[in-house]
């Protein structure tokens, strides 16, 4: 275990954390504003990756393709909201789970039919490919740095939007006192529609950014969705700040655990048993962390104040 490797893995952890934050942000806002559990949020992430990959291949220009992909994801968010989600607000959570589960099946299968089940590749743009030397002996891919930077940038924008603008104020008010906001004459359904479609676009953005380093395949959203659940449960549902910190925590713990768990175990146990138990323990790590946090704080670290 040396410093360079530790640094690289820390950066990788940050990068995973940033992606998770982009996905979790929309999820936690949709839950906060409308008390809505959306299992199909991972689908937006997957859809974003597919739409951007298609648009990039079509326009042969990354920036243009990304913009088109984001517009398409936003549009898909509005369409889904109108067709499905708006009819589910205020329903029992079990009904929301069931319907969004059905939506996952439909969208995943639909993407499989249109694009095929095998992964598709997406090229990184020319200037952002290759690696840079961060310090002697530490070569790091530019694209991953771009992911971290753009993710932090979006997080900052989101914070400004939520904390400093009128619509952000409505979102914050709506997430804690929806009936009162509604009584004050705000169209809470329209607010939900905007928040939902915007959250879908954020998830799609995360999918597009992750596309060059992961394979773009129909089930890519599942794993991310569940990690995003872990993130918002740890961070406290409805809280953007909580989601941000929890996302970085989960990203770092997961990445560092996978990288070093076997080595750490080798300090205490025989090599062969450490090699066997290491990967299993590493994959359990974030869930154990989640369980510990919830054991002491069942509402998460930064629960949004309710009623």
């Amino acid at each position: 275990m040396n410093t360079t490797l530790l640094l690289v893995q820390t950066l990788n952890g940050l990068q995973l954390g940033v992606i998770l934050f982009l996905v979790a942000a929309g999820l936690t806002l949709v839950f906060g504003v409308m008390d809505f559990i959306n299992l199909a949020h991972g689908v937006q992430y997957m859809l974003g990756a597919y739409l951007t990959a298609t648009a990039v291949a079509w326009t042969d220009h990354f920036g243009l393709g990304l913009a088109l992909g984001m517009l398409a994801t936003l549009a898909a968010g509005f369409v889904l909201e109108i067709l499905v989600y708006r009819h589910l607000t205020g329903r029992d959570h079990l009904e929301q789970v069931l319907a969004t589960f059905g939506l996952i099946l439909f969208m995943t299968e639909g993407v499989k039919m249109v694009f095929g089940a095998s992964p598709i590749a997406m090229r990184t743009p020319e200037i952002l490919s290759g690696s840079v030397v961060l310090m002697p002996g530490l070569l790091y891919p530019v694209w991953r740095i771009a992911i971290i930077a753009s993710g932090l940038g979006v997080a900052l924008l989101l914070w400004l939007l939520v904390a400093r603008t009128r619509i952000g104020m409505l979102v914050r008010a709506g997430s804690t006192h929806a009936p009162i906001v509604s009584a004050l004459g705000v169209d809470i359904d329209r607010l939900f529609m905007i928040v939902f479609a915007f959250g879908a676009m954020l998830a799609g953005f995360a999918g597009s950014m992750a596309a060059p380093i992961l394979s773009v395949e129909p089930n890519m959203g599942d794993g991310v969705l569940i990690l995003a659940f872990v993130v918002i449960v740890i961070g406290g549902i409805g809280s953007i700040r909580g989601a941000f910190l929890a996302a970085l925590l989960v990203g770092l713990v997961d990445t560092l655990g996978r990288a070093f768990m076997t080595d750490i175990l080798k300090l205490f146990f025989a090599n062969s048993s450490a090699a066997k138990a290491g990967p299993a323990l590493a994959s359990m790590l974030i869930y154990v962390v989640m369980a510990l946090i919830l054991f002491f704080r069942p509402q998460g670290l930064f629960p949004a104040e309710r009623r």
Partner: peptide, 13 residues
């Protein structure tokens, strides 16, 4: 699943 999924949504709706 392209049929089963919407079926579930319809059942809920």
């Amino acid at each position: 699943k392209i049929i089963f999924g919407p079926l579930l949504i319809l059942i809920v709706l």
